[in-house]
């Protein structure tokens, strides 16, 4: 295909087929993301949105039965979850996990140092890390007491999502995947989280924003919008596609499923 473009591609998914417990969820999904872009993946419940997020992040329990994923020119599927993270993939969880007994800052420092030593950089000591992290926290307007607590333990829904964005800002990924980050957030929390994400937009960083609703995309404005239905991307377009979807509902694209894949857009 567009060979000239290949060098610039950060993530290239070709004809990905994934099944869970013998049930086919993704049925030939293709997607191409370049650095600096924000791609939104929208779709009805059960369309395979979260499966895509989990497969990209390396979660076990998903059988890739066909297709390939290339990330920075590497075979992503050959990498373990931790190595994907070290190579710059970040998944903001739909349901961030509570880890009682593990301090939030200790956890993050361990993560940052795992990434740094993977890159051959010197590890940060506790003091250096603290000042580095505090600067990030101020930028995000995060409550300081989140540092002294255990990872996500007893956090409100908004605090958990904000903690995800905080982690993202500290880990400085190349590809950030936001898995239904808007779920369970009121409008104020949604705005704060979106501001945090927007502040991280950069020419060398791409976002994959997975969402059921168009609402989030009012705040995180995407370059490309894809509609995922029945395990495939059935329609792609610019940000106006999201608005159209909101208006006409998902049945509108479901009906057009026969034309699947043809509408792939170069962003």
């Amino acid at each position: 295909m567009e060979k000239a473009e290949m060098g610039k591609t950060l993530l290239e998914i070709r004809n990905l087929r994934v099944s869970v417990d013998g049930k086919q969820i993704l049925k030939g999904l293709s997607l191409s993301v370049r650095p600096g872009q924000v791609h939104a993946i929208m779709g009805p419940n059960g369309s395979g949105k979260s499966t895509l997020a989990h497969v990209l992040s390396g979660r076990e329990g998903y059988d890739v039965t066909g297709g390939e994923i290339s990330y920075c020119g590497k075979d992503l599927l050959a990498l373990k979850a931790e190595d994907r993270a070290r190579e710059g993939i970040f998944l903001a969880f739909q349901y961030p996990v509570e880890i009682p007994g593990v301090n939030n800052m200790y956890f993050l420092r361990t993560a940052v140092n795992a990434v740094r030593s993977h890159r051959g950089e010197a590890e940060l000591d506790a003091m250096d890390f603290l000042s580095f992290a505090k600067a990030k926290m101020e930028k995000l307007g995060m409550n300081k007491n989140l540092t002294s607590r255990s990872v996500n333990e007893g956090f409100s829904g908004g605090e958990k999502k904000r903690n995800e964005v905080f982690q993202m800002s500290v880990l400085e990924p190349k590809l950030a995947i936001l898995d239904e980050t808007d779920s369970g957030l009121d409008i104020d929390a949604l705005k704060t989280v979106a501001e945090g994400v927007n502040a991280l937009r950069a020419p060398d960083r791409a976002f994959l924003v997975i969402t059921h609703y168009q609402r989030l995309l009012d705040y995180i404005v995407p370059d490309v919008v894809h509609v995922l239905a029945g395990g495939q991307i059935v329609k792609s377009g610019d940000k106006n596609l999201a608005l159209e979807l909101e208006e006409r509902g998902y049945e509108w694209v479901d009906r057009g499923e026969t034309e699947a894949g043809k509408g792939r857009v170069q962003g």
Binding site: R59, K80, F90, P96, V97, Q167, L171
Partner: peptide, 13 residues
């Protein structure tokens, strides 16, 4: 889930 959460942040298994 906790193990995966940590691995997804770059911490080895």
């Amino acid at each position: 889930d906790q193990i995966f959460y940590l691995r997804a942040r770059g911490i080895g298994e």
